[in-house]
Design a protein around this nucleic acid. Structure first.
Lengths: 283, 283
DNA sequence: GGCGACGATACCCGTACGGTATCGGCACCA
DNA sequence: TGGTGCCGATACCGTACGGGTATCGTCGCC
C-alpha cells in the first residue's frame, strides 16, 4: 500500500465516478481502475460497489476513506515538522528577466505548497549574465536560458524554445513565415556589454560579430528595433509586442530553458526545486 | 514521498548504517542510498549526516524518524479498521496433503500478519482430487500441484518441482543418479481411485495405464513401495523417507506447485493470498 | 433495438527501481 | 608513507510496473 494509491482512492471515493476522478488526477481511467483493484486486493476487502446505478462506498471503503484522509493529512504535518526541525531555510533563485513565464509561475506555486516554511528570495537579472550570478554566489539556483559557459555548473534542461527574429511590423521581411540568418546579414543587430559570456553573446548574434546598440534588458532590445530598426531576437511562444513581428529563424538552434546550480552543491532545497520545475514545465 | 521510502528511512535511522539497513530490507546498498537521497530532496532537508565516523541523524532526520514511525503505525491501524468494517471475513484454503512445505509455512505467517482479522480455514485433502474441492465450492482457493483439468479454474504457478521415482533403498535402480520412465516400464505402479482427474492420473503414471495398488495419500504410496515393491513418485526437494531413495526422472515434466481458484471469483482475500504466496514461494 | 455512458480488459511503451561493478575518501596499521 | 579494508556514492544495466490508447461488455434509456 502506497500513499499514491491512497490519494487515488480518496479521489475516487469523493467523486464516486472513475472517469471524473481520473481527470482530477490528470491521468486516464484504466490505470486508475487497476490501481483501485490492486488496493482492494491489498487490504483484502471490496472498497467500492460498482453497478450500473453508479459507484458506491462499501462499509470497508468508508472506513478506508476516513483513515486515508487522516493519514494524508498527517503527511502534510510531517513535512511541516521536518522543515521546522531543519531550521529556518532560505533559497535564492535567480531568474533571467524574460523567463518569468507560465512555467515559472506554476513552479512558484508548487514550490510554496511543497515547502511552506522555506523563504524564497528572488533575484531577477538582466540579459548581461545568463547565470544570474551563480558563480558569484549571489543565487543558489538560476532559472535561465542557454547557451552559456557551463564550466563549474550543473545544467538541467526544462524546455527548448525555437527562436525568432523581431522586426518592425512594417519591415518587408516581417511578412515572411520563416527567415534564415543570411536574410538579416546586412542589418544592424543589438549587442551585449563587454564582458558578457561569449557563448551567450555569440548565440544571440547568430555566430557572427555584429554592429549595433548595446542592450541590457529585453525592453531595450525591443525599443532598439522600434526606434533604430535593428534586428532583435526572442524565443517564440510569447505574444509579439505591439507594432512588432516575430518571425521564426530556421537556422538558429532552439534556446534551452534551464535550471542551473553550482556543481557539487548538494542543498536538497535546490534539487527539490529542480525536480518540481521539471514537472511544472512539462505541460 | 511514498511509504516504502519512509520504511527505508526508518530502517537506516535505526541501524545508522546503510549496509546493515539494506540487508534488513533484503536489498542491496546502492538503491537504498539513492532512495534516501531522493527522500532528502523531497522533504528539502538533509536527514542523515554521513562522515567517516559513521552515520548520524540530523535534527530534521530525528523529526522525520518520529513522524514516520507514527505514520507507519497508523497504516497498520488502518488495515485493522478496514478489516473490521468489512465484517467477519473467512477464507477456506485447500491444501494438497503433501504441499505443506516451507513455502506454505511462510505464506501462512505472512497472511496472518497482513490480514489479522481474517479467519483462515484449512482443508487438507488427499491425492484423489488435486483441485481440493474447488469446483464443489468446498474451498475458496487451493494450494496444490499440477497438472489437472483447469477448465473453469484460474491457475497461478508458484514453483515447479522436478519429479523423481521412489524406490526401496535396496532396489538395484536406487543407486542410479537418474532414471527414465522406460527403466520402470515392467514394474507395478500405484494407481488413484476411479473418478480421479484423468490428467492428474495420467501424469503420475508417466502417460501409460499401469497396474498396481490404489492409494489416496502419500503415506499409502510410500508404504506400497516398501511392502509391495511398487514404483512410487514424488517431487524432489523433500528429504527421502527412511529406507527409500528418490531418483530424478529425467523425462517427467516438472510438477507445478500452483494456487488455483474458481474463474471469475473476485474475492480480494483470494487475490491477496495469491499475491502473498507468490512472494513467499519466490525465495 | 440501437445508442450512449461507464467501468473492465488487452496490449504497448517508457520510466524508475533494484541489481552488479566500481569508485573515492578515510581510518588504521606496518 | 604506502597498503588495506570499510563504507557510502556513482555508473551502468535489465526488468517490472505504472501510465498510455484502443476496445469490450453491460446496462439503462429513448
Amino acid at each position: 500500500m502506497e500513499l499514491r494509491t491512497l490519494r487515488y482512492f480518496v479521489t475516487v471515493a469523493e467523486e464516486l465516478h472513475f472517469g471524473r476522478a481520473a481527470a482530477r488526477l490528470h491521468m486516464s481511467q484504466p490505470p486508475l481502475s487497476r490501481a483501485i483493484k490492486q488496493l482492494e486486493n491489498d487490504v483484502g476487502a471490496v472498497l467500492l460497489h460498482r453497478s450500473s446505478a453508479g459507484v458506491m462506498l462499501t462499509p470497508a471503503g468508508a472506513a478506508l476513506l476516513d483513515e486515508a484522509r487522516t493519514l494524508l493529512d498527517q503527511v502534510d504535518r510531517l513535512r511541516v515538522r521536518v522543515a521546522a526541525a531543519a531550521g529556518a531555510a532560505t533559497i535564492t533563485v535567480g531568474i533571467l528577466s524574460d523567463s518569468a513565464d507560465r512555467g515559472a509561475t506554476r513552479l512558484a506555486a508548487a514550490y510554496r505548497r511543497r515547502h511552506p516554511g522555506v523563504e524564497v528570495r528572488i533575484r531577477e537579472t538582466d540579459l548581461t549574465d545568463p547565470t544570474c550570478g551563480l558563480r558569484a554566489g549571489l543565487v543558489d539556483v538560476a532559472l535561465t536560458r542557454g547557451p552559456f559557459d557551463e564550466t563549474g555548473l550543473t545544467v538541467h534542461e526544462l524546455r527548448a524554445d525555437p527562436v525568432g527574429a523581431v522586426l518592425r511590423a512594417d519591415d518587408p521581411l516581417a511578412r515572411r513565415d520563416r527567415l534564415e540568418l543570411a536574410d538579416l546579414a546586412d542589418r544592424r543587430w543589438f549587442q551585449f556589454p563587454d564582458g558578457t559570456d561569449p557563448i551567450w553573446q555569440s548565440y544571440w548574434n547568430g555566430g557572427e560579430p555584429r554592429e549595433g546598440p548595446v542592450v541590457r534588458v529585453v525592453q531595450e532590445c525591443l525599443q532598439a528595433v522600434l526606434w533604430n530598426g535593428t534586428v532583435g531576437m526572442m524565443p517564440l511562444g510569447h505574444d509579439p509586442p505591439e507594432e512588432l513581428a516575430v518571425v521564426p529563424l530556421i537556422d538558429m538552434a532552439p534556446s534551452r530553458v534551464v535550471a542551473a546550480w553550482n556543481e557539487g552543491d548538494a542543498n536538497p532545497l535546490i534539487r527539490s526545486l529542480v525536480q518540481i520545475a521539471t514537472a511544472a514545465y512539462r505541460d
